[in-house]
Design a protein around this nucleic acid. Structure first.
Length: 518
DNA sequence: ATAGGGTTAG
């Protein structure tokens, strides 16, 4: 590594007064293109290069705001937020007055560090310098406060900003939506003087995340009508919504629209498409999109594996996982969860358990309570109650209510009345309002033929006013989604549906009978 | 020269 040289004009890293961090260090780029890269070598190199640059920066005879801001900005972009904040304090104690851009970058670090008190200090500091009415400082503060959940403060800053721009409004709108304040966000969105793609994306994405699927899709349509061309960030947001709504036809149109506006799909759009098609039950299209993608990351593989898993294709999920490993990609927590889920539903007990054990050995860091719960589910579904109980006893943490529900689920399938009763007591002790334990217990009783116990439980549910969340199925016909519950008679073609169902069932029985003779 | 808002897998 070359030593930084003396004098302002001869430093190896570039002329002083310019951004030291933008100067080319061979083989390195100013902005790391692999933000999640775990490649240790590259990280070491980056760190060394930045250390050199910092030395050069410290040795500079005339440091000004601009070079200081460049230095802090580089640290922020690298994700070295503590260093960025330290550099900022250094600049302050050097007597250099930060400007609007300095606040922009250091506030980003404060957000990343989730340091609301630091944000308040920076706000006060900016106020002392008379920078609070500045748009740049204002936008940065709004974004910071909004991301910290301090929406009142964010709104206050917007009011203090002299000429708020699209960025100021968009930052606040995104924050409002993240906190479930759709009406306020929408009001602000309608009121703001100027809207661009990012503002539309913020609205659409915010609605998607809040579960407001219809609103998200309508906003997308409105955006297109208003002549704002969607970009590659727009489509993942919309696709999440149509997938949540189970609207296969609408999603196909969105896919067509993506091709129309973008020409091709990037990783983000591709990943959302793979997931969308799988979640709407069209595995063929999901796989088709996956195969068409020329760039695939862990998320692409996860979308495929989880798609198989959700559609009951455990073997296919395992095959996809093998193919993924063959490309050299490492699985993460979502990969493992998808695989365990897939094994669960395909009855691949040993495979699932082996995957868990391997992860425990090789990547213990990715294991979360959900994975352990999946294993309990896996074992109890396979009637391996002793293994399940032992596994529960050896958990490295205190099992939550979900673990006992996983165990009781298996009791229902295998009519294990004794275990079901003791587990139901445990669940009841943990959460007396929990309905699912009652339902499961009553199912166990009815499976075992103890009808008296069943009626006792049912009466108890009714008396306590407990509500159950019923499972449902749905199908899309001519752009309309029809939802059905168990024993549902509310559909206007209910009679026809049931008669068709009977025909199908009769045919199936008939076929089976035919086969059994042969 | 320096800064900023929106995105994918469960």
């Amino acid at each position: 590594m070359p030593e930084p040289q003396e004098g302002p004009r001869r430093t190896v890293l570039g002329a002083p007064g310019r951004s030291l961090f933008q100067v080319g260090v061979p083989g390195l780029r100013p902005r790391c293109p692999w933000p999640n890269s775990s490649s240790g070598g590259v990280r070491c190199l980056m760190r060394a290069a930045l250390a050199v640059a910092r030395n050069a920066f410290d040795g500079m005879p005339h440091r000004d705001v601009v070079s200081a801001t460049a230095a802090i900005g580089a640290l922020t972009r690298q994700g070295w937020h503590r260093d960025a904040v330290a550099q900022f304090s250094q600049v302050l104690s050097d007597g250099v007055a930060p400007n609007e851009f300095t606040f922009g970058t250091v506030l980003r670090s404060a957000t990343a560090l989730r340091a609301p008190r630091l944000g308040v200090q920076l706000h006060a500091c900016a106020a002392k310098l008379g920078l609070c009415s500045n748009v740049f400082v204002g936008s940065a503060l709004i974004d910071h406060y909004a991301k910290m959940g301090a929406l009142r403060d964010a709104q206050g800053v917007l009011e203090d900003t002299r000429e708020p721009n699209v960025v100021s409004y968009t930052a606040l709108i995104a924050g409002l939506l993240k906190n479930g304040m759709f009406d306020e966000a929408n009001r602000l969105f309608r009121r703001m003087p100027e809207r661009n793609v990012v503002s539309w994306n913020a609205m659409i994405g915010g609605c998607s995340q809040a579960g407001l699927s219809e609103e998200a899709v309508n906003l997308f349509l409105e955006m297109c009508r208003e002549g704002v061309p969607p970009n590659e960030s727009t489509f993942p947001c919309v696709l999440t919504s149509v997938a949540n709504a189970g609207a296969l036809g609408a999603g196909r149109s969105v896919h067509a629209s993506a091709i129309k506006f973008l020409g091709k799909v990037n990783v983000y759009v591709g990943n959302s498409l793979v997931s969308f098609y799988a979640r709407c039950g069209s595995l063929e299209d999901s796989v088709l999109v996956f195969k068409m993608m020329n760039l695939k990351n862990v998320i692409s593989w996860n979308a495929l594996i989880c798609g198989y898993a959700q559609n009951g294709k455990g073997e296919e999920a395992l095959d996809a996982y093998k193919a993924m490993r063959a490309t050299g990609l490492k699985p993460n927590n979502v990969t493992l969860l998808g695989l365990l889920f897939g094994c669960n539903h395909a009855g691949l007990v040993d495979e699932g358990y082996a995957l868990f054990k391997t992860a425990e050995m090789e990547q213990p860091g990715i294991l979360k309570p959900e994975h352990y719960a999946c294993v309990v589910d896996l074992l109890s579904r396979a009637k391996r109650f002793d293994d399940a109980k032992r596994f529960l006893e050896e958990l490295p943490f205190e099992p939550g209510i979900g673990f006992w529900k996983a165990l009781i689920g298996g009791c229902q399938i295998h009519w294990n009345r004794e275990l079901a009763e003791s587990v139901a007591k445990r669940i009841h002790a943990l959460d007396p309002k929990d309905t699912s334990s009652y339902i499961l217990l009553s199912n166990v009783y009815s499976a075992a033929g103890s009808w008296q116990s069943v009626s006792v439980i049912r009466r108890e549910i009714k008396e306590k006013g407990l509500k159950r969340i019923t499972g449902c199925s749905w199908i899309e016909v001519h752009d309309k989604v029809h939802v059905f519950f168990n024993g549902d008679c509310r559909h206007h073609q209910s009679a026809e549906i049931y008669s068709m169902l009977e025909t199908c069932l009769y045919t199936k029985e008939h076929d089976e009978h035919e086969y059994s003779i042969v």
